[in-house]
Design a binder for these strands. Structure first.
Lengths: 125, 125
DNA sequence: CAAACATATGAATAAATGCTCATATGATAA
DNA sequence: TTATCATATGAGCATTTATTCATATGTTTG
């Protein structure tokens, strides 16, 4: 996922109506959340922005599942699943606990279901 | 944003417990939404997965704004904003209407606010 | 009409991403 | 302990992505 350290934007050359709509420009910058919050938000949604990760999350809607069964369920390699689980853990969307030889993954909290449900509502119009 | 036409996965070599947890594997595939729905969902969340687009959405929380004012507000070029607006339109998160020389953008519906609010709740723990 | 303005878009580029392969880590079983 | 199993991870590659620059489209004004 993007590291988002893109070089700071320059060249704010634009049309001449800045003064006309200065009120809006002002209001926007007043209400804009701080940079690190915006960054965290974007990172969170990036975690949902891939079909493999979405499938993993749907799988975990049903049950707690080990890496190996996830790989089998989704028809992908253990390595691919494991890499994606790392990203989902970083976004705190899933957690895992060891059970003997295996590590069982589960949804970290209820926001995951809510966000996906809202997304579903949106694409279903 | 990813075209997501990645070659179909192969090599389902995995551990030997597939049979052990066959019930889970089965349940997962029964409940998994169809491929095109998963794709649309991932594409939707990708649209939220970039700080520039998140900033545009926050800006539009406050008011309907033309491209030029958006560029001024965010300190970015008109071109960069316009490219991102195209993606947001494709995801049906924003719409625009012409008003004289300008095109004024606004949030397409209320899911946008809800989804971002849920995301905020999640990162705020 | 032409000139000026606001927005859109194509090409190019640097950076990020997802998968594969090989290998490492860490737990259990013999 | 050593062997085996389940998971994690680093490197490499092909693809995707966000921005810039230059230019095109479309509207209004003179």
């Amino acid at each position: 996922m993007e590291k988002e350290s893109r070089k700071i934007m320059h060249g704010v050359e634009c049309c001449d109506i800045e003064e006309v709509h200065a009120d809006k420009v002002q209001m926007v910058s007043e209400q804009m959340p701080p940079e690190d919050r915006l960054y965290d938000l974007a990172e969170l949604f990036k975690a949902f922005g891939d079909t493999t990760r979405i499938r993993i999350l749907f799988a975990l809607f049903e049950a707690e599942i080990c890496v190996c069964d996830l790989a089998a369920s989704l028809g992908m390699t253990q390595s691919a699943i494991s890499h994606q689980l790392r990203l989902l853990k970083q976004a705190r969307l899933v957690s895992g606990r060891r059970e003997g030889k295996q590590i069982v993954y589960f949804l970290a909290d209820d926001h995951v279901r809510t966000i996906i449900q809202q997304g579903m509502d949106h694409i279903m119009e």
